[in-house]
Design a protein around this nucleic acid. Structure first.
Lengths: 215, 215
DNA sequence: ATTACTAAAAGACGAGTAA
DNA sequence: TTTACTCGTCTTTTAGTAA
């Protein structure tokens, strides 16, 4: 485990851009710890090539290396991911189409139903709403990562594949986008489930435009 | 020390916006650690009111609380400070006001004076310059994180609180902004110290506009 | 399958010491 | 003053167990 805490403190002191002068005693106060611990942490960071030091009689000059900067940038990226999820990057827009009719069969299977109930918090209405995404939303869809994993299983002498779910709101109705690991559909078609019959509830027909907000 | 690592991982799973389902086993894989450690960390986060959990037979539903979100935001702010230090984001603009007159007393106390000398590199003129920030600068002030810690202490049968300092230049004069941990002032009022009498030196009166550049 | 507890092993911490 | 050791202590981790 790398000591990102100490590295971050050094960066806040400006050590990413120029060498900063400090001593273990001084740095210990920044970290609210003992000089020994501060010294050991600096040694460790140096050993991992995250900082580079020059020891002088009155302390040490410290600068963060390329490696260290990269480490901090990755950390920063994670926080950006957490906090700056622009609405446009969470919005899927498309039009309702009629699918292959498989959704009704699959969503009714206990193997899936129990997982949906457990992991999404609702039991889906049997059937999926198929949406053909517009070009811009296709890009959003391609960037969808993580999600809630649904496991495959075996039943009735065949296997049923797994997939990923993403909590979403379909015109204010709480539901989920499901992305099967294997599917017959092209990439610009997604399937949506919800606790209610979306077609009826939202008076949708083929061609109706819908907005789905990932959350 | 709060376990920001685990909290961040939960946020990346989306637990800031809705409850996410996980188990200690599953979460352990995210953290690359053992299920016991994962479970203990979740317990600790719950104890500190950073997350809230609901244990179910198949795992647990986890959501990050207001407290937890605040904690992550502060962490994020630090990284923003590291990577985007635009001049506008380091500039505090406001007007001189007359404070409660406490500054003169506090800055003269040995308990603070020695810390200022050691950690800031100068001994402050007794007295603080109080600045009422404009709206834009208030946003800058809210994002000020880290800083140089000044410890509280006990003397004369009472306690004196700690705070944080930020090196700054007040119209080319080297000084510091001090943010006490506890203060009677509202958030848009800051106190500035310097080795000289700023009011005299810069010919300031109440209402004079000053620019303070954090550095 | 879970969570939570216990106890041994591993690791981090900080006082003391030397250079 | 420094940094960098050693060594005893304390904390954290993890395997094992119970519910």
């Amino acid at each position: 485990m790398i000591d990102v805490e100490s590295l971050k403190k050094l960066a806040l002191l400006g050590a990413m851009h120029r060498p900063v002068k400090s001593s273990s005693n001084e740095f210990a106060e920044y970290l609210s710890t003992s000089p020994q611990t501060a010294a050991r942490r600096l040694q460790a960071l140096e050993k991992e090539a995250l900082i580079s030091r020059k020891i002088v009689p009155s302390g040490q000059w410290i600068i963060i290396t390329k490696n260290g900067t990269r480490e901090l940038q990755e950390e920063y990226l994670e926080y950006q991911n957490i906090f700056s999820r622009e609405r446009e990057e969470r919005l899927l827009i498309g039009s309702v189409i009629t699918g292959l009719g498989e959704g009704q069969y699959y969503t009714a299977l206990d193997g899936y139903k129990t997982q949906f109930r457990e992991r999404l918090g609702f039991e889906p209405f049997p059937g999926t709403l198929n949406i053909k995404l517009d070009n811009q939303s296709l890009e959003v869809r391609k960037k969808m990562v993580g999600g809630i994993k649904i496991k495959g299983f075996a039943a009735q002498n065949r296997t049923f594949g797994g997939g990923k779910c993403f909590n979403a709101k379909i015109q204010e109705i709480g539901g989920a986008v499901i992305l099967p690991d294997r599917t017959h559909y092209p990439e610009d078609i997604i399937e949506v489930i919800a606790p209610v019959n979306l077609r009826e509830h939202l008076s949708l027909r083929d061609g109706s435009e819908v907005q789905i907000e990932l959350c």
